[in-house]
């Protein structure tokens, strides 16, 4: 009898476990729905290749061994505009320590991007994602969004929204080799 009871308990425990797991999984997926598609910290950064304003191709995987500060932006986006000079300043500090900035403009014309880069004297590569291809690959929502990629090509952090100069410096420190 006690053997049968044990077996019954085991069955009950396993059924309840499966049911609880299913409910927890569904809850977790729903509550993190917005981030579900987004490339997250810990993921390998999807590779891409985009062309900068001088016509040079930049492939993410070519920067293995360096930290990559991957910034998605638009000329019309005020916070993007605000953080660009911070990025430029810190680029001057960290570029010799092996940190590369790739600023990906999402879907705007060469003229606008060029104008913007000249206005802010950006010395890091500014690339254009005209077909929003890379934006979808990273499932970027609102701009700006910045991904910190370590020298191994792994995403360390996803930063949504505007950054202060201190944050930019801190993040570059995080990913320098």
């Amino acid at each position: 009898m006690s053997k049968r009871k044990k077996k019954r308990l085991l069955i009950r425990v396993s059924i309840l476990t499966v049911l609880i797991a299913a409910v927890v999984y569904t809850l977790y997926s729903t509550l993190t729905d917005d981030d579900r598609m987004l490339v997250k910290a810990g993921d390998a950064a999807p590779d891409f290749e985009l062309t900068d304003l001088d016509g040079n191709a930049h492939r993410l995987s070519d920067y293995k061994g360096q930290g990559v500060f991957l910034n998605f932006w638009g000329t019309w986006c005020k916070p993007c505009e605000k953080e660009m000079p911070y990025m430029e300043n810190q680029y001057q500090v960290y570029k010799d320590e092996g940190v590369q900035i790739l600023a990906v403009n999402v879907g705007e014309s060469e003229f606008q991007v060029n104008n913007f880069a000249n206005e802010y004297n950006l010395s890091f590569p500014v690339v254009r994602d005209a077909q929003k291809d890379v934006m979808y690959a990273y499932a970027i929502g609102p701009l700006p969004t910045t991904l910190l990629i370590n020298p191994e090509g792994e995403v360390v952090k996803v930063v949504k929204g505007e950054m202060t100069e201190e944050m930019v410096a801190e993040y570059m420190e995080m990913i320098k080799p």
Partner: peptide
């Protein structure tokens, strides 16, 4: 349909 307590209710019904 995405609120946690509603999903819990559905989960409880399933259970």
């Amino acid at each position: 349909y995405s609120s946690w307590w509603y999903l819990l209710l559905i989960g409880a019904i399933g259970t």
